Amino acid sequence: MDAQPSDAADIPTDESGGFTPQFGETLAVAAIVVDAKSQKAAAFYQHFGFIELPGQPGRWMLSRSHFSGLA
């Protein structure tokens, strides 16, 4: 018998045991933040809509509005 956390039954799953879309839609994510380790990495992130955070060189952010409709 597998041990499961007491609240495991509260997490909606589909027939295969994967999370249902409703569960994924309830995650509260405001942005994705990354640290570019090189100029090439920074250019990569900028190409995909990330913006460099003011006062934090090398730290880039993609707001939720850019990725919320992808799932």
Rank of each mutant, 00 (worst) to 15 (best):
A30L: 01
G69C: 01
S63E: 13
I11M: 08
S16E: 12
A41N: 05
S65N: 11
I32K: 06
A36C: 05
K40F: 02
R64F: 05
K37T: 04
Q56N: 04
A28S: 13
A41R: 03
D7H: 10
L70C: 04
Q4E: 11
P57S: 06
A31E: 08
A41C: 03
D2S: 09
E52N: 10
Y45M: 09
L53M: 13
G69Q: 08
G18I: 00
Q39E: 13
L27T: 09
G17F: 07
T13L: 15
T20Q: 09
S65W: 02
P54T: 01
F50K: 06
G58M: 07
Q39W: 01
P54F: 01
A3I: 07
F48C: 03
S6L: 14
A28M: 14
T13R: 15
E15C: 00
A30N: 13
S63Y: 00
V34M: 02
F23L: 13
I11E: 12
L27M: 05
K37I: 00
E15S: 13
A36P: 08
E25V: 00
A71Y: 02
Q22T: 08
H47E: 13
A9Y: 01
P12Q: 02
S6C: 05
P12N: 00
F50W: 09
Y45I: 11
L53H: 00
F48W: 15
G49Y: 07
F50P: 08
P5T: 03
E25I: 00
A41V: 08
I51D: 15
D7L: 09
R64E: 05
Y45T: 09
A43H: 04
S65R: 14
P21W: 07
R64A: 04
A36V: 07
F48Y: 15
I51N: 12
S16V: 01
D14N: 15
S68H: 04
L62I: 01
W60R: 01
D10M: 13
R64K: 05
K40L: 03
A9F: 03
D35F: 07
G24I: 12
K37S: 05
L53C: 05
A71V: 01
S68Q: 13
F50T: 07
P21T: 11
I11Q: 12
F19S: 05
I51Q: 13
G17V: 10
G17Y: 10
R59K: 13
L70N: 11
A42E: 09
W60Y: 15
P21M: 11
S6Q: 13
G58Y: 04
R59V: 12
M1R: 14
T20K: 14
G24F: 14
M61W: 00
I11G: 02
T20A: 04
A43T: 01
F23S: 02
E15G: 09
V29H: 01
Q39L: 01
P12Y: 00
K40N: 06
A43R: 12
K40S: 06
D7T: 06
A9T: 03
K40D: 07
T20P: 00
A41F: 02
S68L: 01
A41I: 05
G69S: 11
M61E: 15
P57Y: 01
Q39D: 15
D35G: 07
E52T: 09
G17S: 09
E25S: 06
E52L: 11
R64I: 05
D2A: 07
G18Y: 10
A9S: 12
E25N: 12
Q39K: 08
R59C: 08
L70E: 05
